[in-house]
Design a protein around this nucleic acid. Structure first.
Length: 338
DNA sequence: AGAATTTGACCTCT
DNA sequence: AGAGGTCAAATTCT
């Protein structure tokens, strides 16, 4: 029980630090030292939290996909995926670009997945607008899946060399759910802009039935509505962490070979939608390296593992609203974000 | 006409 | 050999 509280505290501290980092990233006068210190603290916080989970052996293995989906519906689930499919895109220009290095392995594409539920009316078209412009370059029937998988790449790939791609797969169980796997960060002009402004200025939404599931403000409100953190396969703690400066968004954290997956589903239609968030964890806006992928050597941030390196951040948070069932802890409808 | 999508072929990995 | 991912010509859309 004590561990659970500590774990929660560490996770909350991580969120708080991330918020601070976001603020600093938006302040041009802030020093690189400040940013790096914050990043270091965030890594340390998450590492300790994950260690706690690992020690308690809260590992969800063998859960069916259906069960997983059930977990994610109406919640935001952050869970560890298995090692990323490095065998993917063998012919992709992602790996072909670097002819001086052995194919794959050296470049670990950032990958994160989210599930999006659309309203039944637009289920036919699928989720369209995520703030970026994509061009479809392929479709494939996937073994065991009813619906084909669509392959998209950034429209600015040729012009700006943006290597971001995504795959869209409709769920078999629920056709209104789309699992979208993103790979790589946007290095195009759009990506260098403030994501919030960027998305707001680029979204042309003429369909009143659709909604901007990926606007940071919406995400934050989703998080406010309900948040469940689910962890599994935490053996990665024995491995090193990858850079945090390529995080696609607050709740989608990629640690080198592992992904913290966030899933948004019913929360998009949550009736508890409130006014747009004006602060909170929002979006990490970071400048990717030219390749669009992490450079492990230069981006790796030393881990601060000693307790002395972790400042005690006072968080005004009602812990009694937490529910911890041994595997998940939830805090529903808790307005703890300022 | 140019942009975007479709779709069969091809490539790589397991 | 089969599956997944990408290419590129053909087709469709704007």
């Amino acid at each position: 029980m004590e561990d659970s509280k500590n774990l929660i505290q560490e996770l909350l501290q991580g969120m708080e630090l991330a918020r601070q980092l976001r603020i600093y990233l938006n302040v041009s006068s802030s020093s690189n030292e400040t940013r790096e210190l914050l990043i270091e603290k965030i890594i340390s916080t998450f590492e300790k939290a994950l260690e706690m989970v690992n020690h308690k052996g809260h590992v969800n293995v063998g859960e069916s996909s259906q069960q997983k989906q059930k977990h994610t519906l109406g919640t935001v689930a952050i869970r560890m995926l298995d090692s990323p499919p490095l065998s993917s895109s063998p012919r992709s220009e992602d790996s072909d670009k670097d002819h001086n290095t052995p194919r794959k392995r050296n470049v670990v594409p950032i990958r994160w997945t989210k599930q999006i539920r659309v309203s039944p009316g637009m289920a036919v078209e699928g989720p369209l607008d995520d703030g970026y412009s994509w061009r479809k370059y392929g479709q494939k029937d996937i073994l065991g899946a009813i619906h084909p998988r669509g392959y998209y790449r950034c429209t600015h790939r040729n012009v700006q060399g943006c290597l971001a791609t995504k795959q869209v797969q409709r769920s078999d169980e629920d056709p209104t759910i789309f699992e979208i796997t993103y790979r790589g960060n946007h290095t195009c002009t759009m990506a260098s802009l403030n994501p919030i402004e960027n998305q707001e200025t680029n979204i042309v939404n003429t369909n009143p039935q659709s909604f901007d599931h990926e606007k940071p403000e919406q995400r934050l409100n989703d998080l406010r509505t309900s948040l469940r953190v689910q962890t599994e396969n935490l053996d990665f703690l024995n491995q090193s962490f990858a850079p945090l400066n390529h995080l696609p968004s607050t709740s989608e954290l990629k640690f080198e070979n592992h992904v913290l997956e966030s899933s948004y589903a019913e929360s998009f239609n949550s009736p508890s939608y409130v006014s747009p968030a004006n602060s909170g964890i929002g979006h990490f806006s970071v400048s990717p390296n030219p390749s669009g992928f992490p450079n492990v050597a230069s981006d790796m941030i030393p881990l601060a593992t000693s307790a002395a390196n972790t400042p005690t951040t006072t968080l005004d948070f009602p812990f009694d609203q937490f529910q911890f069932d041994g595997q998940n802890f939830t805090f529903d409808h808790t307005p703890f974000f300022p």
